[in-house]
């Protein structure tokens, strides 16, 4: 049997012993970080430019998450999981942004799709995440247009309108640039 595919089933197997393959691997990894903002899926609910659905939850650290109370701020709402590599990569960056842009201007909220709250709590603690994180469920996922993969990040403007949805491994610079635009008066 062949092994280690890097693409669709009929793709050429990766030859890890060759420098060319290693370079290709690195290039591939680099390309993943430049994924553009994903359009809404036809089979999923398009929430762009619509009011963000209500979100009221108790965070893993017992803080209250109430999206309605955050009007006046831009909100980054991130769906993630403890076993999701791209999520773990971007979350520490998200954690820095409220301090960078002012926590009265920008709020970050996390929703975990982990099956076990303990897994989410452990991962968030390990990453030293300060923003509130709550557990998600299917109802919330459906309300938010279908969370059928992670990470998915929404940007909600200061009026509570969803202005962007980033799906999959995304260059954080793209997200940050959009935040800067939303923060402009």
């Amino acid at each position: 049997m062949t092994s280690a595919p890097t693409g669709p089933p009929k793709a050429t197997p990766l030859r890890t012993s060759s420098i060319a393959a290693i370079a290709a691997l690195l290039l591939c990894a680099a390309s993943l970080t430049t994924a553009a903002q994903a359009p809404a899926h036809p089979a999923q609910k398009n929430l762009l430019n619509r009011p963000a659905p209500p979100l009221h939850r108790t965070a893993l650290d017992h803080r209250t998450i109430d999206l309605a109370s955050l009007k006046g701020r831009v909100v980054l709402l991130n769906f993630w999981a403890s076993w999701c590599g791209p999520c773990i990569k971007e979350m520490p960056l998200f954690d820095q942004w409220p301090a960078k842009y002012g926590d009265t201007n920008l709020a970050v909220l996390g929703i975990s799709i982990d099956d076990a709250p303990a897994d989410a709590f452990k991962a968030a603690t390990k990453m030293h995440i300060h923003y509130p994180i709550a557990m998600g469920d299917a109802k919330l996922g459906t309300t938010y247009g279908g969370i059928l993969g992670v990470p998915i990040t929404y940007l909600i403007d200061s009026h509570g309108i969803i202005r962007a949805r980033f799906e999959g491994e995304t260059d954080p610079a793209l997200i940050e640039a959009r935040i800067k635009t939303l923060l402009k008066p």
Partner: peptide, 17 residues
Amino acid sequence: YIENDFGTDWAAKGYPV
């Protein structure tokens, strides 16, 4: 083989769910 995620490579293709 799901290249991106279930939403993109199955649901969004119009395959049944």
